[in-house]
Each structure stands twice: as structure tokens, then as C-alpha cells.
Amino acid sequence: MLDIREISKTYTVGGKAVAVLDGMSLRVGPGEFMAVQGQSGCGKSTLLLAAGGLLRPDSGQVFVSGSDPYELSSEARADFRATHIGFVFQQFHLVPYLDVLDNVLSPSMAHDSPDARPRAMDLIEHFGLADRIGHLPGELSTGERQRTALARALLNRPKLLLADEPTGNLDANSGAIVLNYMREFAASGGAVLMVTHDSDAAGKADRVIQLAKA
């Protein structure tokens, strides 16, 4: 599902080159839930962005469902992300002026399908947000926001879910609920790559890898 081969990424900070990923490789197969842990600045988020087709590595290759998104044009890569990859972030990043339903439906602006609306309703129901469907993000609890973000990530039935500290802003209970949904996604055949500081969250994964500073 996700195959990362020998990727490297170097940033220039204050005129100095800082390598954050140096020949990193990993594979996440269908049905697998993998967690990545490591110190701050070790390149966890860079890994996630590179895996999601958002940050081209300096070298190495990334394959999602057998395709290298960086081989595609910018427009095609955006469409590829819409159909193959779901993102969940620590800060949820919901669109503040869209209610729960519209936030969940927002990926359909990039890739519309006739069943987008029923699919969104199903996800909202599934994630226990039915009574919040018309609420704006500012009116939701943090757990509800993250569930909304998770529903949004899954609208277009992606094969790969990339989560960056998904429980970082949640209480234990809400965090557990979100992790259970992610496990559920993996159990249905999806691949999950989660970056986290939280050992409890990592403990829910099938496999945990520790990322050291390059």
C-alpha cells in the first residue's frame, strides 16, 4: 500500500543544511496500522508529508498503491491525494465556516462522486456525529472535531490514512475512540501510518518504529 524507499530530505535552517530523513525506507501493507515515534525534529512530520505526496523528498521514492505521486503533475497529484490518501492532523484543521456535514463533504470538491452525500451521512452516523451535523467546528468538542476530521479523511474511500498526532489534543477517552476508528479502518483493509509522541496511542498500532535523528 505505502512503500517508501530510501528517501532523504534536508532543510536549510539559518544557512546550515539539516538532514531530517536520510535514506529512510518503510512499507505499510493493506490492513496494517503502523505508528512512528521519535524525538521532536527527527523527521516524523516530514515523513508523513512525503508519504502524502505533499513534500517531494530530495532523493528516494514513494509509492502509494503502486504509483509514485511525485511522477504526476501538480494537478494530477492533487487528484491522486483526493482519491488515495486521507489526512488527519493534531489541530483537526476543519474549515471553520463549514458545518460538520460540509466539512465531511469537502473532499468532494476535489473529487466528486454521486454517492458523496450518502457516504458522508453514513460516516457522520458511524462516528456518532448525527446530532452535530449542522454545527460549526467552533461548536464541537475536541473529540467531535477529530471524529469529523476522520470522517472527512475517509469520504473518498482512501487506501492510505496518514495521521499526525491524531490524539495530541484529545483527552484519553476521545483519543481512544479515534484510535479505535483508525484500527477499524485498518481492519477493513486500509493502511494507517500514524506519527505520535503518545506511547499509549502507539501501543494500539500493529507495528511501531522509532525514528532517530538523522
Partner: peptide
């Protein structure tokens, strides 16, 4: 800015 970032991440192209 952040909204644009997330819309790009979920697949909206620059043209959109």
C-alpha cells in the same frame, strides 16, 4: 492560510 493548506492536502488543486 491554514484552510488553504488543508484544502490542498485533501486534494484541491491550485486552480481550484
Amino acid at each position: 492560510t491554514m484552510e488553504i493548506g488543508i484544502l490542498r492536502a485533501i486534494g484541491l488543486s491550485g486552480r481550484r
